[in-house]
């Protein structure tokens, strides 16, 4: 069996140790060689800091709460359904929606790295990428949920999805009580980022 020879060769050590200097050195080098365009870097940053975020996923959830046929289609083939809404691309090539019920709470983690549905939720928050979340979410999800202020009743079992492949999971939180007359836009305001990862619940109206 071949051995992973990269273990003995870590060229990154040739760069300056300070992270800011390290990144600048690499960007300067790559730009000088014509391999990156600084304007493209600005565009990528603007995309993920200002444009793509959890409002996208919240629209999907609000529609699933409002439209039974949409909900059924979403649970059947989320990739196609969210693509129709314009949500597709990098780190969202294959989407599966999983629905919370009184008997089942879903929660998503990536123990091996930090896989996350970027087109629906944007880039992941720091805690999602943290060692503490990655190590503990699979073994003690209820203690982790308690740290987010969430406590589940005894009749609710927890399903933790460890995203080990290129399939990205979107949690459909339960629709809060007292929201019967609300339209999709108002409902979307109740759908937090964390409720679509499964570390939170949707907001109650007026909360």
């Amino acid at each position: 069996m071949p051995h992973d020879h990269h273990d003995h060769d870590h060229p990154h050590a040739l760069l300056p140790p300070d992270p800011a200097l390290r990144v600048r050195a690499l960007e300067t080098l790559l730009s000088r060689k014509g391999l990156v365009d600084p304007a493209a870097l600005d565009e990528i940053i603007d995309t993920y800091q200002n444009r793509i975020g959890p409002r996208n996923g919240a629209q999907v959830v609000a529609r699933a709460w409002s439209d039974p046929a949409f909900r059924a289609a979403l649970l059947d083939d989320a990739t196609a359904v969210v693509a129709d809404l314009g949500f597709f691309g990098r780190q969202g090539e294959h989407i599966v929606a999983v629905e919370n019920t009184p008997n089942r709470h879903n929660m998503v983690v990536c123990t091996l790295c930090s896989c996350y549905p970027w087109p629906l939720l944007g880039i992941p928050p720091g805690w999602y990428k943290s060692d503490a979340y990655r190590s503990r979410a699979v073994r003690e999800p209820r203690k982790v949920l308690a740290e987010f202020g969430v406590s589940l009743p005894a009749e609710t079992s927890v399903r933790v999805w460890d995203s080990t492949a290129e399939v990205r999971y979107l949690v459909i939180p339960m629709r809060p009580e007292g929201t019967e007359g609300m339209d999709e836009a108002a409902l979307a305001d109740l759908v937090t980022r964390d409720s679509m990862i499964g570390t939170g619940l949707a907001r109650e109206p007026g909360q």
């Binding site: 800091q49 959890p54 805690w127 943290s130 503490a132 982790v144 980022r193």
Partner: peptide, 13 residues
């Protein structure tokens, strides 16, 4: 690994 530290909702900065 200790506790998880939640962050504000929205787009992470």
């Amino acid at each position: 690994d200790g506790p998880v530290s939640p962050e504000p909702q929205g787009i992470p900065q």
